[in-house]
Design a protein around this nucleic acid. Structure first.
Length: 275
DNA sequence: CTATAAACCTGCTGGC
DNA sequence: TGCCAGCAGGTTTATA
């Protein structure tokens, strides 16, 4: 699933192929979904036509396409992908939406599960999904004090706080599991019980793991659930220590890793190492 | 206010 | 072999 490193990888790959180009036509192939907002597919296509892509940025897991007149905020959710093709749109049956540029190239949005979203807005401050976000997990301005203050303000377990994008933006289930293990903190700890030292350790592991995963172009599970814009999988899978490994020995102490169900998600942890 | 749950989707896997 | 329940899970919206 695309989390921060996967989204950043995709952006870095498509940016040079897309920025500066003029949109000749936008085509929403998959009608009748909630993918496009707030306009319907027809208006979305009209609005994008003739605009120039001036840049692509990211906040958390959201992609922000800056166009000459408007902004399109996209989210890949579980199975969204982008590809760039020449001459014709990507032939995948899961190609849900594509932009045709004036040079004959195409930016395609592929999404098996159709959870991905596109919001056309005036500017990025007019999209609530973005304004709600906390600082990006790899933003330089993020520090232990900010993180700790947010953790102490809420009454929820640290696992849920880590996934709460309004605390910090960009962490999903895979990297939350890994960061908690590496910082030796139990996912069940109340977030307001973390000491400054623990919060600092956890934040350092979050930053470390996300930036390392970015170097590896993200994580692709055995099931091939994530592929970048080149159709490649990320190699960080080989560095996972606990995610998806319940029932196997803890790499630190050999205790069998346990699986929890929190908010309908699978959480794997070592009850000996993580306190 | 918080906290939980359901909804959105499709492909894959495990059990019978 | 076939069928079906369950799982994967980020975010929004609804409900308690």
């Amino acid at each position: 699933m695309p989390e921060l490193p996967e989204v950043e990888t995709i952006i870095r790959q498509i940016r040079p192929k897309v920025v500066g180009k003029r949109i000749k036509a936008a085509t929403v192939r998959d009608k009748g979904l909630r993918m496009i907002a707030p306009l319907g597919a027809e208006d979305f296509q009209l609005e994008l036509s003739e605009q120039i892509v001036s840049g692509i940025t990211r906040h958390g897991k959201f992609l922000v396409f800056c166009l000459s007149k408007t902004v399109v905020v996209a989210h890949l959710r579980m199975s969204g992908r982008f590809t760039v093709s020449d001459g014709q749109p990507d032939a995948s049956p899961y190609n849900r939406l594509f932009l045709e540029f004036s040079d004959g190239s195409f930016l395609n949005f592929l999404d098996i599960r159709r959870f991905g979203t596109f919001h056309l807005v005036e500017d990025k401050n007019s999209y609530p999904g973005l304004t709600r976000l906390g600082p990006d997990a790899l933003d330089d301005s993020l520090n232990t004090q900010i993180f700790l203050a947010k953790l102490h303000k809420r009454k929820q377990i640290i696992y849920k706080a880590l996934l709460d994008q309004s605390v910090i933006a960009g962490v999903g289930n895979i990297y939350a599991n890994e960061a908690l293990f590496r910082s030796k903190i139990s996912p069940l700890r109340p977030s307001d019980s973390l000491t400054e030292g623990e919060a600092g350790r956890l934040l350092a592991e979050v930053i470390n793991i996300l930036s390392t995963a970015l170097q590896f172009k993200g994580t692709t599970l055995i099931d091939g659930s994530y592929l970048d814009s080149e159709g490649e999988g990320g190699a960080f899978r080989n560095l996972l220590k606990v995610y998806g490994k319940s029932g196997t020995p803890c790499p630190e102490c050999n205790t069998t890793l346990e699986k929890l169900r929190i908010s309908n998600r699978s959480v794997v942890y070592c009850k000996i190492c993580q306190r």
